[in-house]
Amino acid sequence: MTRLSTDQLCLGYGSRQIVQELNLSVPDGLITALVGANGSGKSTILKSMARILTPSTGGVYLDGKLIHRQPTKEVAKHLAILPQNPTSPEGLTVRELVSFGRYPHQKGFGILSPEDNRMIEWALEATGMSGFAGRPVDHLSGGQRQRAWIAMALAQGTEVLLLDEPTTFLDMAHQMEVMILLEKLNKEQKRTIIMVVHDLNHAARYAQHLVALKDGSVLYEGDPEVVMTSQMLRDVFNIDADIIPDPRTGAPLCLPYGLAEESVASRSSHGIPAVNAQTSGEYREQRVKAMA
């Protein structure tokens, strides 16, 4: 079963087509990662799923209904989005930011109801931001700021979260802080999460479903163990890499070492055989034996 899907979806900006005839079903209750090179259509697809970008043809479906024909407030009760690099007015506190997530549920003059306040407090606690509720958002660290925005999305009370590169411009510790939070939300609250991710190792470790895109089309889709292969990396990113099991989690770990054409030329000039799926598989098998 899937609540969110696309059918023959075509997207573009002006006369430039980015995505053509995309058919995609997002599995419920899982973290789905959209991966691909810059310009592959990842963020464009996410914007269309969030009803920000209108399709040229085809459509996005939420619960079997075209999402672009549904009222904005109605869609916002089921689906929340965290865009790239969100910004807030100077001096806005964390609690004020999170309260904006209750907008779809408010009536009249936008006065917060007891249920609104309950959801705000719950979102702050779930993201570990209760202690920062009165602090201005622009005074937070990068990781804290991202958690505050995620808390706003949680306060909407939606079953589906869309996140566009949630770890961009964050250092390693703050990246892990955000990814661990998303993993927790998925496991403990069964949230369906669709995120655009540039770090392939983050995608393979934290997502249960990978969609690899190139030129607006899906080239590979499925479990990380199935999708994350040397062949996929050549086809989608034009790089050569070994895929080995993560020593702690067992998730596929990408070790890139060069661009595909350059790597092949370099190996040939030095009399080194090119790495293929078979030799990569043998390497992974050797690593597994060494770890046992």
Rank of each mutant, 00 (worst) to 15 (best):
G58P: 09
G58D: 01
G59L: 08
Y61P: 07
Y61M: 08
L62C: 09
L62K: 03
K65S: 12
H68F: 06
P71Q: 09
T72W: 02
L79S: 11
L79Y: 05
I81V: 14
S88E: 10
S88F: 10
P89S: 10
G91S: 02
G91P: 01
T93Y: 03
T93L: 04
T93R: 11
E96A: 14
L97E: 00
L97G: 01
V98H: 00
V98P: 00
S99A: 15
F100C: 07
H105I: 02
K107E: 06
G110C: 04
G110D: 06
D116A: 05
N117Q: 14
N117K: 14
L124P: 03
E125D: 15
T127F: 05
T127Y: 01
M129F: 07
S130T: 13
S130F: 08
S130N: 13
A133R: 06
A133V: 04
G134M: 06
G134R: 12
G134E: 13
V137T: 09
V137R: 06
R147K: 15
A148P: 03
A148F: 03
W149S: 02
L154I: 08
A155Y: 00
T158C: 10
E159N: 09
V160M: 09
L163V: 05
D164Q: 09
T168P: 05
T168A: 15
L170W: 02
L170N: 04
H174T: 11
H174I: 09
Q175K: 13
M176A: 15
E177K: 14
V178E: 01
L182Q: 07
K184R: 15
N186W: 10
N186F: 10
Q189T: 08
K190D: 14
